[in-house]
Amino acid sequence: MSVKFNLYGSEGCHLCEQALALCLAVMPATALAEVDILDDEQLLELYRISIPVLERLSDGKKLFWPFEQAQILELL
């Protein structure tokens, strides 16, 4: 399975770790790419105060934290 979602966050972000655990509970790890916003100035500007953010790559639809497993399932 190829990557279908990006999870935007940053290293050491406890909310990002919670979001990752929620995502991995309902989708395979191969469907998800973790993207550190600190590695990209544009992403940092976009998501600085919003992380974690889950994005469906097929259409760009995003979930901004806080989100729950049910919302992730709807996004699948």
Results as ranks from 00 to 15, higher is better:
Ile49Leu: 15
Glu68Cys: 11
Arg56Tyr: 03
Asp36His: 05
Lys61Arg: 14
Ile37Gly: 02
Pro66Asn: 07
Ser58Leu: 06
Ile51Asn: 03
Glu55Gly: 04
Gln71Ile: 02
Ser50Arg: 15
Leu54Pro: 05
Asp39Tyr: 05
Asp40Gln: 09
Ser50Tyr: 13
Lys62Gln: 15
Glu45Gly: 07
Asp59His: 10
Gln42Val: 12
Leu44Ile: 08
Pro52Asp: 02
Ile72Ala: 07
Leu38Cys: 13
Lys62Pro: 05
Asp40Met: 02
Phe64Arg: 07
Leu38Arg: 14
Gln71His: 08
Arg56Pro: 04
Ile72His: 03
Ile37Trp: 03
Ser58Asn: 09
Val53Asn: 00
Asp59Glu: 09
Lys61Val: 15
Leu38Thr: 12
Phe64Gln: 09
Ile37Glu: 00
Leu46Val: 11
Gln69Glu: 13
Leu43Gln: 15
Leu44Met: 11
Ile51Ser: 10
Asp36Met: 01
Val53Lys: 00
Gly60Gln: 03
Asp36Pro: 01
Ile51Trp: 03
Val53Trp: 00
Leu57Ala: 11
Leu63Asn: 02
Asp59Gly: 07
Pro66Met: 06
Leu44Lys: 12
Arg56Met: 01
Leu73Arg: 13
Ala70Gln: 06
Leu44Tyr: 09
Lys62Val: 10
Asp59Ser: 09
Ile49Met: 15
Ile72Thr: 02
Leu54Gly: 02
Leu38Lys: 12
Glu55Arg: 12
Gly60Ser: 10
Ile51Gly: 03
Glu41Trp: 07
Leu38Met: 14
Ser50Glu: 13
Val53Met: 07
Arg56Asp: 00
Lys61Glu: 15
Ile37Leu: 11
Leu63Tyr: 01
Glu45Arg: 11
Glu41Ser: 14
Leu57His: 11
Glu68Leu: 05
Gln71Asp: 09
Leu63Arg: 04
Glu55Cys: 06
